[in-house]
């Protein structure tokens, strides 16, 4: 792995979960905003993490999902 490869480090979370949570936290909450309107629609309840609680809401949801996941 090069220094520039994207990594996610956590003791608790699966990398795929973290990748989604962190991506949502970045793209929905941050970045340049052009004066005018941002119009988005929410179709998937699991992805309603809008606002300052983006990460934690999604972490809690993910935690629930992980807890309910059948063991293989």
């Amino acid at each position: 792995m090069s220094d520039f490869d994207q990594i996610l480090v956590s003791e608790e979370w699966e990398e795929t979960d973290l990748s989604l949570l962190e991506t949502l936290d970045h793209v929905l909450n941050r970045g340049l905003v052009i004066a005018g309107e941002i119009t988005i629609s929410v179709a998937d309840i699991d992805l309603i993490f809008l606002g300052v609680n983006v990460l934690v809401s999604s972490v809690e949801t993910a935690h629930e999902v992980l807890r309910k996941r059948p063991t293989e």
Partner: peptide, 18 residues
């Protein structure tokens, strides 16, 4: 640098439900 793209502007966000 999502967190550092921070030119302050007035904006309005609309949330629709599809």
């Amino acid at each position: 640098p999502y967190s550092f793209a921070n030119i302050e502007l007035e904006f309005k966000t609309q949330f629709g439900v599809s």
